[in-house]
Amino acid sequence: MNALPLILTVFVACAVEAVEALTIILAAGITREWKSTLQGAGVAVVALAVITAIVGPAVSYLPLTPLRLVVGALLAIFGLQWLRKAVLRATGFKALHDEASAYLKEVAAAEAASADKRHGVNDWYSFTLAFKGVLLEGLEVVFIVITFGDNQRNVGAAALGAIIAIIVVAALGFALKAPLTKVPENWMKFAVGVMLTSFGTFWGAEGAGVAWPGNDAALLVLVPVVALVAAAYIFWLRGRQATLRAASTSESVNA
């Protein structure tokens, strides 16, 4: 299979997570101290690289059929989680992730925390805040890089997508010195959810023993069908949301 869909999927997933990590880094760096913040982020990136370097090749030694079954199940479950949240956010049943308000919250917490020097780090609060933020957001990326990369037997291409996303988001963030509020995060999450769910379904069923009609070409049908079904749920929920709003408006008028 062409490596481009793999690189693009990992790129978009990683960009979304990088935007969230960047918000935390900027809040810690601008409010407190850049050196400790960058040390924390750097240590987290090294930890993520070590996890990928150990787990990635180890998983690739597993036979392909059981690997596809397990990874397919995990990806489908994980992808449906992203898709569920994206559908709920697109229809107003769940609040959109707001980078500006997340940034202000982190800034307020960072300003309130006291300075503390530990283990050669000038500001332990900035260090741990950046470390935790990058590690937690990065774990999802590592999961996607390893599962997609190993299934395609191309961890290098998956890692490339992740690295390009980190460089692009970091460059934009440090150029603007502000959280990236204009990024259409929910639609990017929707797209990643569609890709994870489609690939998870495809590989999971293959691992369970089915032969897809058209082999890999079945993905060219599966991906748009998953997107269409998810879009249909958005359409249905928007209708429900409109009915709920109309009912609440008429209730307040009657009261």
């Binding site: 449906l80 898709l83 069923a205 089915v210 032969a211 897809w212 929920l237």
Partner: peptide, 17 residues
Amino acid sequence: AWWLLPVLVFAALGWAV
């Protein structure tokens, strides 16, 4: 049964939302 998992995945998403 290649068709079974996609159908259940669509149902799972509908059920979840």
